[in-house]
C-alpha cells in the first residue's frame, strides 16, 4: 500500500482531531465573549441606586399620534404658540392638574446665543403655556455633559425656569436608577435619570437643531442622551444604536425642535456665531422621528444621512416620511 495515501481510518482520525481543535478554539473565544455589553461601574454614582428594573413610563397620547407642525418665523414664543395651535391646541396635551416635565438640552455651559442648548426664551414660553393650560407643576431637567450648575446658569435655563415658576432639578447621584430597556443591546442595567419623573404625567422634549461631529445631528432623539448617567461617552462608539435605543425608551407627550437658528457646523459645541444659520423654523409634533427628519433638512441633510433616524423608524418609533403625516406648514 502506498504509504503517502490516507487510509479511511487516518482521515477520520485527523478530521476528529481538527474538529476538536476548532471546538476548543471556539470555546476559548466564547469564554472571552462579552454577552452583556458595557455596564456601569458599581463603584460610581449608581452605588445607591435601585437595582430593580424599572421602565420609563409612556407619556404619549395615542389619539394625538402622528401629528407635526412646521412654523417659519423669527420669534420663538410666537412660532411655538402657532405650532401648538396647529396641532390642536395645548389642551390636547396638558390637562388641569398635570405635572409636566420638560426635558431640555443643557449639555454645555455656554451662552444661549450659541444655540447649543435649549433657548431660554423658548423654555419660558413653553412653561407659560403649560401653566395656562392648567398644569399644577412644571419641572425642568437634564443631565448635562459639563458641570450641571454651570450649565443651567450660563445657558439661561435656570433663570427662565425660576422666573416662570417652574422647578429646576439638578441631577444628583440619588436621582438615578439602573434601567434595562427591553430588546436593547446597550441600555442594560444602566443608570437613567429617574426621580425627576416621579409623579410626572406629561413629558415635553425640547431641543435645538445642531450639527454633531459624531452622529451627524443632535436633535430630539439625541436629546435622550441627557437622561443617561454613568460614563455614557462609552456609547459614542455605537452612537447611532444608542440614539435609537433612547428613542425607544423615551415616549414624549410632545416634542419641540428649535430650528430658529441652526448650528450647521462645528457641532455639538459650536462656539462661534458663524456656526449658526438663521433658518427661522420651529417644528412641533408627536412623532419624534418625523420631527427630526424634517429638522435634518435644516442641516442640509436627509433622514438617510442619519442612520439613527432610519434605525428608529425601523424600530417602530416613528416615520422618516414626515410628508406622509401631512404636516401643517405655517409662516408668521
Amino acid at each position: 500500500m502506498d504509504k503517502d495515501r490516507f487510509s479511511r481510518r487516518q482521515f477520520i482520525s485527523r478530521s476528529i482531531k481538527t474538529g476538536m481543535g476548532v471546538a476548543v478554539a471556539g470555546a476559548v473565544g466564547y469564554l472571552f465573549h462579552d454577552t452583556e455589553g458595557p455596564v456601569s461601574d458599581s463603584n460610581t454614582l449608581d452605588s445607591t441606586a435601585d437595582e430593580s428594573i424599572w421602565t420609563l413610563p409612556d407619556f404619549s397620547i395615542p389619539e394625538m399620534a402622528g401629528k407635526i407642525a412646521v412654523v417659519r418665523g423669527e420669534d420663538r414664543s410666537n412660532t411655538l404658540e402657532m405650532a401648538i395651535k396647529a396641532l390642536g391646541g395645548i389642551d390636547k396635551f396638558i390637562k388641569q392638574g398635570d405635572t409636566v416635565l420638560i426635558k431640555v438640552n443643557a449639555a454645555f455651559a455656554v451662552s444661549p446665543i450659541l444655540c447649543a442648548t435649549t433657548h431660554p426664551d423658548l423654555l419660558s414660553a413653553m412653561i407659560r403655556i403649560c401653566y395656562k393650560a392648567g398644569a399644577a407643576k412644571v419641572r425642568v431637567t437634564d443631565n448635562p455633559i459639563n458641570d450641571p450648575a454651570s450649565c443651567f446658569m450660563l445657558t439661561g435655563i435656570e433663570a427662565a425656569t425660576k422666573q416662570n415658576g417652574a422647578d429646576l432639578i439638578l441631577p444628583r447621584d440619588e436621582n438615578f436608577a439602573n434601567l434595562t430597556l427591553k430588546n436593547a443591546r446597550l441600555i442594560k442595567k444602566w443608570p437613567v435619570l429617574k426621580t425627576p419623573f416621579d409623579g410626572v404625567t406629561r413629558l415635553i422634549n425640547m431641543a435645538p437643531v445642531k450639527d454633531h461631529h459624531r452622529s451627524g445631528a443632535s436633535m430630539i432623539l439625541k436629546n435622550g442622551y441627557g437622561l443617561l448617567g454613568g460614563r455614557r461617552n462609552i456609547f459614542h462608539q455605537d452612537i447611532h444604536t444608542i440614539i435609537t435605543e433612547l428613542a425607544m425608551m423615551v415616549k414624549s407627550t410632545l416634542v419641540i425642535l428649535d430650528g430658529t437658528s441652526t448650528m450647521i457646523s462645528n457641532g455639538p459645541t459650536g462656539g462661534s456665531l458663524s456656526d449658526l444659520k438663521p433658518t427661522h423654523t420651529l417644528i412641533a409634533g408627536t412623532d419624534p422621528v418625523a420631527v427630526d427628519s424634517f429638522g435634518a433638512t435644516l442641516l442640509g441633510k436627509t433622514a438617510q444621512d442619519l442612520p439613527h433616524l432610519v434605525q428608529a423608524a425601523a424600530a417602530g418609533v416613528g416615520t422618516v416620511d414626515y410628508l406622509s403625516l401631512k404636516p401643517a406648514m405655517l409662516t408668521i
Binding site: D41, T44, L45, A149, R172, D173, R231, I234, H236, Q237
Partner: peptide
C-alpha cells in the same frame, strides 16, 4: 480603541471647582 472604554470607573458629578 476609543479611550472612553478605559474610563469606566471615574465619576462625573463634581462641581466645576472640583474637577
Amino acid at each position: 480603541y476609543n479611550p472612553a472604554v478605559t474610563a469606566l470607573s471615574a465619576t462625573i458629578f463634581t462641581s466645576s471647582s472640583d474637577i
